[in-house]
Simulated assay, not measured.
Amino acid sequence: MIGTVYKSTGSWYTVKNDSGTFFECRIKGKFRIQGIKSTNPIAVGDIVEFDVEKLGDDTVGIIHEIKDRKNYIIRKSVNLSKQTHIIAANLDQVFLLITLNNPTTYTIFIDRFLATAEAYEVPVVLLFNKIDAYDDEELGEIKFLAALYREVGYTCIGISAKTGKNVDKVKELMTETTSMFAGHSGAGKSTLVNALEPNLKLKTAEISEQHLQGQHTTTFAEMYDMDFSGRIIDTPGIKGFGIVDMEKEEIGDYFPEFFALKGDCKFNNCLHIDEPKCAVKEALENEEVAWSRYKSYVQMVSGEDENYRVDIHDTKK
């Protein structure tokens, strides 16, 4: 049988076949995907081939083949820095939830996520959540940041998962697609899923007052069928986003505004850092390229730890 992976716990996989029946499946023997050293050989969204076997009174699926992926989102494993973790596969789009505070989404996190999505050909929509909770000054910062990313070419929407503001716009984009929600814990992913599909009743939690961080409410990535003919993958909160398998010479190609200027640089292999007659640096000085994006790029090229952050409040400098 052929089916789609809806949930992965690391050892068991919930798979839905073409007729809509769910099976609890395991991997047969040693199962590895060629060319990918991942902590999870199979991810939510994968198309797999499996057989059904009787195990006592239970029916168990045995996965023996994974079909080629059209794309996937991958990051460095949290606990094993030399290994990677595939968050989800075969995506039509990813919605990255961004919050100004409670918790703060730093631009380095946004830019690392966007560069990875560009590298693996996954379209991204930026959702600036909790706009009901901001004062006029904070709303101004959100509008500035959204304008920055719209200029690069990304779709940006200000939403409130809590009040339902612009949730209809998100639903329209999700119709007839497989989408993923990503962002920090507490950014409102599960709240947004519940606003889109109240019957799911996903667990949500309040922000920790002591640390101003979200509480992890989603333990494993899981896909849900929506009543409006869309599918959403809800993911655990991501604290950091380590980039994977990018040579420093190619990182600039995953910043669309840098790639558009690359042909005007004096050197074909220009890194846009110390080289003379660099079109990107000239655009930067002319304020045609955002300083926050350039800082993120330099950090990624130099391999600096993500903990060196550019704050959202720093984007105008």
Rank of each mutant, 00 (worst) to 15 (best):
E285C: 05
G242M: 03
Y254I: 09
L271C: 01
F258H: 06
K239G: 09
H272C: 07
T219G: 14
M226Q: 07
V244E: 06
H216A: 08
D274H: 14
E282L: 08
K239P: 14
I232P: 11
N286F: 03
S229D: 15
I251Q: 09
E222H: 15
A260Q: 12
P256I: 00
Y224L: 03
F241K: 07
K262Y: 07
K248I: 05
H216Q: 13
F241V: 11
T218R: 01
K248N: 13
A279I: 02
G214W: 03
L271V: 01
I233W: 06
G263C: 01
T218V: 04
V280N: 01
S229M: 14
L261S: 05
C278G: 06
A283R: 05
I238G: 14
D245L: 06
P276R: 04
F259V: 07
G240I: 13
K266G: 02
F267L: 02
M226C: 12
I232L: 13
D234T: 01
E222R: 13
F228T: 06
A283S: 12
S229A: 14
I238C: 13
Y254K: 04
E288G: 07
M226E: 08
F241C: 10
A290M: 04
E282S: 05
G252W: 06
V289M: 00
N269W: 00
G240K: 12
A221S: 15
I243C: 01
G252A: 08
I232F: 12
K277D: 15
